[in-house]
Design a protein around this nucleic acid. Structure first.
Lengths: 197, 197
DNA sequence: TAGAATAATTTGACCAGTCAGTATAAAATG
DNA sequence: CATTTTATACTGACTGGTCAAATTATTCTA
């Protein structure tokens, strides 16, 4: 029965994600979430304290899932360059998924000014992203294919490049450009890491 | 009298900016704007069609002003490296201004999914930013200090690096780190442009 | 130029609609 | 039958936009 409860919570989070992706953070109502989950409004309030609680768990769920996928994808490769390519492949997984995730993620970013909890969860996400970057970079340094002074800073730069690229792609509203933004992001990151300034 | 009307509109836009910076896009009410402008609620509706109209003009005003400042700052320098430094200096103008602007800007980014008008204005802003990047890059190519294949793409990469860096800095909630994020952004952009891949 | 007439601007009460959260009843479960 | 879960009605608070009345500025006229 605890299992069923967990299932219900997942069902509601999934519904909340769909609702936010479709309508945007601030216009989603508890009723919308209930509708997408095909349950009544009372259920959401039964399983979650309130709206912010739903959205906090949602952000945690999304960011964790994304990190796990990314971490898994670089595990499969041996070389630093292989890992980097796999990472970029996983980040730019598809126009549809990128669009859905980044729309929702932007909503959260804009809420973080006022929601300490969201900020905490995002900080954990950043740490995870940076750790992936660090792993790729240190491997590359060992192999001699990368040349950077500050590993930590380079990991942050990789994240900047990815976020910045995906945001500009998202605003272009052109799915066809997805592949080229991805390849340019890949090239830029290579430039960042290879240069022996 | 047309001059006075224009003044009123500016006053309302300024108030709207303060209100959004303080309370966030979706919790700002027409009453808030009126309060910040120290006028009554009806005035906003007298000078603007509706709320979205106010915010559209606000976005236009902000992005234009920022572009003009940036464009002016690179005009003063002769060399590509000088221009680049001046540009980064202008972008990372101060923790306070960056925090205010980027908070508001993130709000707008998250709204663009649903507001075509905002997207259009942002696209114009992008074009302007890219044109600054292009100017710096072509100058650097001429001088022989930069080596890139695709000027257009490099301009986009610069923008990615700036946006991505400022977002991560904003989320760190640490004004003291502003200087180091700025210098790292500068270094990263130099790496992007100097590398002869 | 006084002051009436007209136009522009400002005010704030009001309306119709929305939503988060609550209370409570009904149903399912075991 | 007792407990958990779900459905629904309700409440209180709030909002965008409207509008008629009040106020202020401008123009006209004698």
């Amino acid at each position: 029965m605890a299992k069923k409860a967990e299932q219900r919570r997942q069902q509601i989070l999934k519904a909340a994600f769909e609702a936010v992706a479709a309508k945007g953070y601030d216009s989603v109502t508890l009723q919308d979430i209930a509708d997408y989950a095909e349950v009544s409004k009372g259920v959401t309030n039964y399983y979650f304290k309130n709206k912010v609680d739903v959205f906090s768990h949602l952000l945690e769920w999304i960011t964790t899932r994304i990190y796990e996928k990314e971490a898994a994808s670089i595990e499969l490769k041996e070389t630093a360059l292989g890992k980097l390519e796999a990472y970029i492949d996983q980040v730019f997984v598809s126009p549809e998924e990128n669009k859905t995730f980044y729309s929702v993620y932007l909503d959260y970013l804009s809420q973080m000014k006022h929601q300490e909890r969201y900020r905490q969860i995002n900080q954990q996400f950043y740490e995870n992203c940076w750790s992936i970057g660090r792993e790729i970079i240190t491997q590359g340094l060992k192999e001699g294919v990368f040349h950077v002074e500050d590993v930590e800073q380079s990991a942050i730069s990789i994240r900047s490049m990815i976020d910045g690229t995906l945001i500009q792609w998202l605003m272009s509203q052109d799915d066809a450009k997805h592949a080229s933004y991805k390849s340019h992001c890949h090239q830029s990151v290579l430039r960042l890491l290879r240069a022996s300034s």
